[in-house]
Amino acid sequence: MEWFARLGAGTLDKLSAFGRATFVLLGAVVAKPRPLKHIPLTIKQIYVVGVQSLSIIIVSGLFIGMVMALQGYTILVDYGAEGSLGPMVALSLLRELGPVVTALLFAGRAGSALTAEIGLMKATEQLSSLEMMAVDPLRRIVAPRLWAGMISMPLLALIFSAVGILGGHLVGVDWLGVDAGSYWSIMQSTVEWNEDVLNGVIKSIVFAFVCTWIAIFKGYDAVPTSEGISLATTQTVVYSSLAVLGLDFVLTALMFGI
C-alpha cells in the first residue's frame, strides 16, 4: 500500500514538474518579439553554446569517422566491397551518429553549463533582481539561450558529419588504400538529400529542442543551493541523454521504418 502511495506521489511530482517546464517554455517563447534587443543576446549565446562547442564536436567527429572507416573496411574488404565504404560512413553519420552523438556531447558540454549558469543566477538572486527591475528573466535570460541551442545544434551536427566523412576518407582512402573515386562517387549516388540529409537535420532539431529545454528548465527550477545546482546539472545530462536515445528510436522508426 505504501509502495502504491509512493508511486502516486512520484507520478504527481513528475507531472507538476512537466507543467512547470511547459510554463517556462511558454513564458520564454510566447511574447511580443523585440528583435533589436533579443537578436544581439541570442548571437552572444550562439557563441557560448555553439561556437565554443566546436572543438569537441570536430575532434569527436574526426575520430568517429576514422574508427568507422577502419571497422567498416575490415568487414567490407572480405567481400571485395570496400568501395562501399564511402556511403557506409556517410549514411551512418548523417542518419544516426551525427545528430545523436552531437546531442549527447551538446548535453554534456553546453546543456550542463546552461543549467549551472541559470541555477547560479537563481541562487545569487540575479533572477529575482531582474524581476524587481521589471525585466522578465524568462525572456531576457531563458529565451536567448533556448533559441541559441536550437540554432546551434543542427549546425554542429552537420559539421560533425562532414568532419566524420573526411575522417573516414583519411583512414579509408589515404591509409587503407580504398579508391578515392569510388569513395566519393558511390557516396554521391547513394546519399539522398531528403531521405538522409534532411531527416538527419530534422532529428537534430528535435534533439536540440529537447536538450535545451531540459537544460534551461532544470536551471530555472533548481533548488538554489550548492547541492540543488549539482543535482540539477546531473539531471540535465542524464535526462537529456535518455531523451535523445529514446527519441532517436522513435524518430528512426517514423522516418526509416516500414
Binding site: 545569487t124 538572486e125 540575479q126 533582481s129 524581476e131 524587481m132 527591475m133 521589471a134 522578465d136
Partner: peptide, 19 residues
C-alpha cells in the same frame, strides 16, 4: 506589476550584481 516595479527597487542581500 512590471510598470509599477519601475518605481520601486530592491537592494538584495548579496547585491545580486550581474556577474
Amino acid at each position: 506589476l512590471f510598470t509599477v516595479r519601475r518605481q520601486m527597487s530592491m537592494l538584495f542581500q548579496s547585491g545580486a550584481l550581474f556577474t
